[in-house]
Design a binder for these strands. Structure first.
Lengths: 333, 333
DNA sequence: CGAATTCATCGACGCGCGTCGATAATGATG
DNA sequence: CATCATTATCGACGCGCGTCGATGAATTCG
């Protein structure tokens, strides 16, 4: 392994000069630094992470932990989250790894902490009363919970603001003149949060239940006109079923958006644009959210354990105006 | 942070005695070790990974890298692989992390190597002529390719032996008296490897094409008796379609296994046992394979870079004798 | 031109731990 | 009891790097 000493010898300078040339924390003359950099290049020198972490104090590494990534088929959204964190963290000169779950309980966290090579932890897929959260808090390790926070969560978190989704969807529909809206979900009962927001917009809700499959959606399309004559718009919580609905609407004599407008919630862009007409959605930018989370994590690590700054970020959705939304009874915008 | 010095002071021993008490690399009296362990417990001491790696020389860490984990919806089999590696590596006292892909090329590997905190790399989802392989080889980092090796792969690898799957399936069918067998796959052409092995067993093959969906499978079941009168057995390469086939067979007047025996290939245990009758399969133990890979990785790291031992492991499949295989025309075993 | 100031560079130290050689304590042997 | 082998424990060193105080060179100013 090439070390700092090798570079120093080759460049004809002291070891500390090598350090300062690379870190820039003290002025080094142009000429000297170039000699050092040339030597670094020539020998392919890489600073040793263990040594740097040991000498420098804080480990420049962020660890991602998720409980469900390998236990259940992950959704592709997780890819955007991981990707965002990686880049957010890297932007600040830190690195990131994923800590694999071995046992599914907080013993995984214990082992991680024991290594003491990670400066902070980003938890994903956290459930209510997650033991890992309590352990991290007790051990005073900087951590952020990304997604699925409990109500009034008292630790650092970055999350989607689900309320904003429904606010955006219903106010958009209200603006377009829709007053009776179907909520497509997996069960008969409608989420109280949705009810509340619809009520605030003076919108009457009807529950549309379906399995989240292509077939489920197209079955609904077949009977829709007859079964729900007054409904002019649908808010869909089912990403796959609504694709089936839209794709088979025309052959069922249903004109989207003239007969029924549609806004999809929590859909991937690929899904929403795979249909004809393409589905309007309220979407989150998972990548940007995660990137911000990564940046926040680094800042929290650098702030140190004594910092009392709390991170609370809620990201609101964006209305993606595609081809399934129009004024009541009208063809397109 | 509590350090070795704190333990030494509390236990009233020297720092090296603390080290040896924990590592067991030199004899320490029962009495002394207990005092040390008590102090460790009391102060919650964790040895610092960076310091240990620095002092000990070789980093006791294995890194998993995969190219497709977050770019495409991963199959659940990946969970078993990760799990196996984690446990195989841990068994040898090492740790493991997953290195997330930021750019999708070998720059991710470069960054990893630069950190110099990982003793070895396990590559998953490798494609032909993967740049990462060449880079790791050039940098002399111990690495193993897990799965999908090119023919005649010249580096360390652990993989499934796909040939064994078909050998097992066809010899089983031959033993049960089947001579005309359908191959259920996504296209009309039959894999040459399969053809070769069937021919060696004097078995006549017929291609059964279907989409890999429940509906595709049940559609096939409906027309099967008429369309393929001579076929008494099926080897299925489609995990989902065959579930649909078996589940709707009875209602199509098709008795499994009396009318047609079935062996599924590359199915998850959950899928194979979700039907009635449960599907016999040839399966790989992905977990055990990965665990072995993890153990091998640690051994390679400990052997050092000068070791010239090459790791080549092929894992053969297991016939899982469930309820869809019987002698020609018979009911059950 | 000498003193004060700035700038570039150096040497030394310590982070926490693994490990080697040395020492003290213990037991065995003649 | 003296001698030697064995065992348990200690002290010291070094891994590679970040950083602080100090030194010498270059520059400025009175």
């Amino acid at each position: 392994m090439t070390t700092r000493a090798d570079i120093a010898k080759l460049a004809g300078v002291s070891e500390s000069t090598v350090s300062y040339s690379l870190s820039g924390k003290r002025p080094i003359s142009e000429k000297t630094r170039n000699r050092v950099l040339a030597a670094v290049e020539q020998l392919g020198y890489k600073s040793n992470y263990a040594a740097a972490a040991l000498a420098g104090g804080l480990p420049r590494m962020v660890t991602m932990m998720t409980s469900n990534l390998f236990l259940a088929p992950p959704s592709r959204i997780d890819g955007a989250l991981v990707d965002g964190i990686v880049h957010g963290v890297r932007e600040r000169g830190f690195h990131s790894v994923i800590w694999p779950i071995a046992n599914g309980d907080d013993s995984d966290v214990k082992v991680l902490l024991q290594l003491n090579f990670s400066g902070g932890v980003i938890l994903m897929g956290v459930t209510d009363n997650d033991q890992r959260v309590h352990l991290l808090n007790r051990e005073k390790v900087p951590f952020i919970v990304l997604g699925r926070t409990d109500v009034g969560f008292k630790y650092n978190f970055v999350d989607r603001d689900f309320e904003s989704v429904y606010k955006i969807a219903f106010s958009k529909f209200k603006e377009l003149g829709h007053t009776q809206i179907g909520v497509l979900s997996g069960n008969d009962a409608i989420d109280p949060l949705i009810k509340k927001i619809a009520a605030a917009n003076k919108i009457k809700l009807v529950s549309l239940k379906s399995k989240n499959t292509i077939d489920g959606g197209s079955a609904l399309a077949k009977t829709f006109k007859q079964s729900y004559p007054g409904i002019t718009a649908i808010v869909s919580l089912l990403d796959i079923a609504i694709v089936g609905f839209v794709n088979s609407a025309k052959s069922c004599g249903l004109d989207v958006p003239r007969d029924v407008s549609i806004i999809g919630v929590n859909m991937l862009e690929e899904q929403a644009t795979s249909t004809s007409p393409q589905i309007s959605t309220v979407a989150f930018d998972a990548y940007e959210m995660a990137k911000s989370c990564g940046r926040n994590m680094v800042e929290a690590i650098e702030a140190g354990k004594n910092s009392k700054k709390k991170i609370s970020e809620l990201w609101i959705g964006d209305f993606m105006d595609r081809e399934t939304t129009s004024r009541v009874g009208e063809d397109s915008k």
